[in-house]
């Protein structure tokens, strides 16, 4: 029997798979938490993908970049929540973390720029540019290289929620 897909009024329902919660203070206390969390979650959710090792490698690569973004937040308090859910070939990352208002505005603008034809050009320009990679590059790369769909959702308090749908199962070798 194959996986069961749920849909309600045209909006697919993603089945929860795993969630990790940490105080942001604890999370940012060691840079390697990004690596630990992305590697662990990638392994956990990739077991029943058609190629578990390859899926885990790609998922870890994408999630680590998002966690590194969260790790650079300028907000000192609150919690980080990383939740992964699944609908068919797509895995959804919901990353909630505290941020200051300027950062929230930045993410909202950045996400609005990752769609559209100019996204690829912006991404290539950033690769060849002199400046160190910005948080926007991470989001552009997810959209361009991983075919990810991104959006920002409301979250409680001084937090922001990045929602990233990754269709890794469908990515060709």
């Amino acid at each position: 029997m194959g996986p069961v897909h749920h849909e309600l009024a045209g909006e697919p329902i993603f089945a929860p798979m795993i969630q990790i919660d940490m105080e942001i203070k604890a999370f940012v206390s060691a840079w390697r938490h990004c690596d630990y969390v992305s590697t662990y979650m990638a392994r956990m959710i990739s077991q029943n993908r058609s190629d578990s090792v390859r899926h885990s490698n790609l998922f870890s690569s994408a999630l680590n970049e998002l966690l590194e973004v969260a790790s650079r937040t300028r907000h000192a308090g609150g919690d980080l929540a990383c939740r992964v859910s699944r609908h068919g070939a797509t895995d959804r990352i919901e990353l909630t973390f505290p941020c200051v208002p300027e950062e929230r505005q930045f993410y909202e603008e950045a996400v609005s720029h990752v769609t559209g034809t100019e996204a690829r050009e912006r991404y290539l320009n950033s690769v060849s540019g002199d400046l160190a990679p910005s948080r926007e590059v991470v989001l552009l790369e997810l959209a361009v290289d991983y075919n990810a769909a991104l959006r920002v959702e409301e979250a409680d308090g001084d937090a922001i929620k990045l929602v990233v749908d990754l269709p890794l199962e469908g990515l060709q070798h």
Binding site: D35, N57, S60, S61, N64, E65, E68, V127, A132, P133, V137, V138, E141
Partner: peptide
């Protein structure tokens, strides 16, 4: 090279 973040790639 199993993983490389954007900072290192750049």
């Amino acid at each position: 090279l199993t993983q490389m973040n954007n900072a290192a790639f750049h």
